[in-house]
Design a protein around this nucleic acid. Structure first.
Length: 270
DNA sequence: CACGGATCCTGATGGC
DNA sequence: TGCCATCAGGATCCGT
């Protein structure tokens, strides 16, 4: 589920709720994708000094280390002063002086990983290969042009892989390519420069709009206050197979690339 | 090194 | 109602 907008919405909520709080207790449920890498007790007494984001990771800077939180496909984080009894899908709780952070993740593709500092090899392992931030200054057509040179894979899959640009997941990649008029099956290196300009703009606008709307809630994503995101109502192609294209009325097509659905308009996207 | 495919896990949904 | 197949926001690992 969570792509960059959902993680950013989560990050802002956690920052609002728990910045400056001190961890008092930790509860862990079933194992997530990767081990925490530290005895939970070592988190106790540490203060949450900042809440940042890198790609789809949320980074909690603690007094003596960093906590990397990934929401996987089905994760969401709730912040509250009180939470009830942990349910079967609640796999990580941080009890702090300002309230509780609870990670709920039915499929358990998410992760919470601790490292003593940002230069630690584990952090490098998880974040080191990531591409540029799509909302940052480094992401422009010149960069994309250079980064896509020699890439024979489809533009959709190259963007999704996260090594060129991060945070653009399965929903927003379809939405961005539609807005840029680029066919998702086109080889990445064959996207002409003017199209790359449009693509950069489209990715930025789609992600920013999704953040404003609180992300997309296809089924289980919720913000830290428990509310749903609304971007899915503005999706122009994602999940709209067979429905008319908003520009030309041609039925939207669904294809599968790398076991993931892609939605596009055969007429508007070339 | 870049690529495509299999894989982790659980729940929702739709067809019969 | 039950059963089975299919699909779901991600990212890593493993061959080629």
């Amino acid at each position: 589920m969570p792509e960059l907008p959902e993680v950013e919405v989560t990050r802002m909520g956690v920052e609002q709720a728990l910045l400056g709080a001190t961890i008092e207790a930790v509860r862990m449920g079933k194992p997530l994708r990767w081990p925490l890498q530290v005895a939970p007790q070592r988190l106790v007494g540490q203060r949450i000094q900042s809440v940042q984001r890198r790609g789809k990771y949320m980074l909690l800077q603690l007094s003596q280390g960093v906590l990397l939180v990934h929401l996987g496909m089905s994760g969401s984080v709730r912040c509250a002063t009180e939470v009830g009894e942990a349910g079967v899908h609640d796999h990580f709780d941080l009890f702090t002086t300002r309230g509780v952070l609870r990670l709920t993740d039915p499929r358990r593709f998410g992760a919470v990983v601790y490292a003593p500092h940002m230069d630690h090899p584990r952090v490098q392992q998880l974040l080191g290969h990531l591409g540029v931030e799509p909302l940052g200054d480094a992401f422009d057509a010149a960069y994309l042009h250079a980064a896509l040179r020699g890439r024979s894979g489809s533009i959709k899959q190259v963007l999704l892989a996260g090594q060129v640009v991060v945070g653009v997941g399965n929903i927003y990649v379809s939405e961005s390519l539609f807005r840029a008029g680029i066919h998702p099956l086109r080889q990445a290196r064959r996207v002409a420069r003017p199209r790359l300009e449009r693509l950069v703009q489209a990715i930025r606008e789609v992600l920013q709009r999704a953040i404003v709307l609180g992300g997309s809630s296809l089924r289980d994503f919720k913000g830290t206050q428990g509310g749903y995101g609304d971007f899915q109502h503005e999706a122009l192609v994602y999940g709209r197979a067979g429905l008319p294209c908003v520009h030309c009325a041609t039925p939207i097509r669904r294809v599968v690339q790398g076991q993931r659905s892609t939605f596009y308009c055969v007429r508007c996207q070339t």
